[in-house]
Amino acid sequence: MRQEETVDVLQASGHPRTMKIGSSFSHFAKNKWLYLFLIPGISYLIIFKYIPMFGIVIAFKDFSIVRGIWDSSWVGLENFQYLFQSSNFYKVLRNSLLLSFYQILFGFPAPILLALMLNEIRNLIFKRVSQTILYLPHFISWVVLAGMVINFLSPSTGPVNYMIKEMGYDPVSFLLKPEYFRTILVSAEVWKSAGWGTIIYLAAMTGIDPTLYESAKMDGATRMQQVRYITLPGIATTITVLLVLQMGHILDNGFEQVFLLYNPSTYDVADVFETYTYRIGLIDGRMAFAAAVGLFKAVVGLVMVLLANRIARFFGKQLW
């Protein structure tokens, strides 16, 4: 039997496979313009995310720029063995985990709290002005922000040390003291990104049914009770998704902010995988070792996303 006859027989008999194919084509034809808008995003992912994944093989080779990726000799897991046996590895891993932990502990709740406070403002003009002021730091580059931090904490001209000297104490070189570095970096990160992060949570709050608040008011609920029992559960899904995504970047501390603020006196607490890879891969020219470090970070990020997603699904109903 020919293929055309087979299709006609299946259509006449209402075969599920033929009905499914037909419905898929009709759905695609109906929403063709929506699928057309997906092309730029899909192209970006393929070109800049998936195609470069073939470069992972560099981590398993003695890579040479002259010989190229495919002609370089295989070394297997030698780069990973050197990474795990390096004395700097555990120091860099500790610094990366600590900075990420502090950023999650202080940085993740900050936009949630700001969004809750902005959502309670009833004066629209004041609310919009406040939102604009909170968003502005996001558009300041880390180069400019690092210069602001350096000038602000300068032992000679900085306003912080000016106040310290006015109180009768000696000026403090904050950026040269390892015990202050993490606090300075995390504080700058929170100040820069907290306002921008409120956009997502404010958008999620607009999806909460207003009648829930009206019913709560009729029952005598206070503002804090409305936030606790209506607003927070209403954005719980958004909070969970963003937390899971952030766990995937547990070893990503950002290169610019660390590189612009650290110095040899703070290497022991400031050196993270980005700066470590920069020195080993670009300055020392060991591209294969840098690729091994990047692959290690990617694997850890994938494991953390899967683990965080499993925990969020397990405890989601109990928490909210």
Rank of each mutant, 00 (worst) to 15 (best):
M1E: 14
E4R: 11
E4Q: 13
E5F: 09
E5Q: 12
T6I: 11
T6G: 06
V9F: 15
Q11T: 12
Q11N: 15
G14M: 10
I21Y: 13
S23M: 07
S23W: 06
S24M: 12
S26L: 15
H27V: 15
N31Q: 12
K32T: 09
K32H: 11
W33N: 15
L45H: 10
I47P: 01
F48L: 04
K49H: 03
Y50L: 01
Y50N: 01
P52R: 03
P52C: 07
M53F: 11
F54I: 05
I56F: 15
I56K: 12
A59L: 03
K61V: 04
K61L: 08
K61M: 07
S64G: 04
R67I: 12
D71E: 13
D71M: 12
S73K: 14
V75L: 13
L77W: 13
K91S: 14
L97Q: 09
L97Y: 08
L99S: 07
L99N: 07
Q103H: 10
L105W: 11
P109E: 11
A110S: 12
L113Y: 14
L114M: 07
L118Q: 05
L118M: 12
L118V: 09
E120Q: 09
I121M: 13
I125E: 05
I125T: 07
F126T: 05
R128D: 07
V129D: 14
I133Y: 06
Y135R: 02
Y135Q: 02
S141F: 04
W142I: 03
W142D: 02
V143G: 06
L145K: 01
M148C: 08
M148N: 10
L153I: 04
T157S: 11
T157W: 05
G158E: 10
Y162G: 07
I164W: 00
E166F: 13
M167F: 06
M167W: 05
D170S: 13
P171C: 08
S173W: 05
S173H: 08
F174H: 01
E179C: 11
Y180N: 06
Y180L: 06
F181I: 04
F181W: 03
F181V: 00
T183S: 10
W191S: 03
S193F: 08
T198W: 00
I199W: 01
L202W: 02
A204W: 00
T206M: 10
G207H: 12
G207E: 11
G207Y: 08
I208D: 12
T211F: 09
S215P: 06
M218T: 10
T222S: 06
Q226W: 01
V227Y: 06
Y229N: 14
P233C: 04
A236Q: 03
T237W: 10
V241L: 10
V241K: 06
V244W: 03
H249F: 08
E256D: 15
V258T: 01
L260E: 09
L261M: 07
L261A: 04
N263Q: 15
S265Q: 04
S265V: 02
Y267L: 09
V269D: 00
T277D: 11
Y278G: 03
I280Y: 01
L282R: 08
R286C: 08
F289L: 08
A290K: 01
A291Q: 00
V293Y: 00
G294T: 05
L302D: 09
L302R: 07
L306Q: 03
L307G: 10
R310A: 14
K317W: 15
Q318D: 15
W320S: 12
W320H: 15
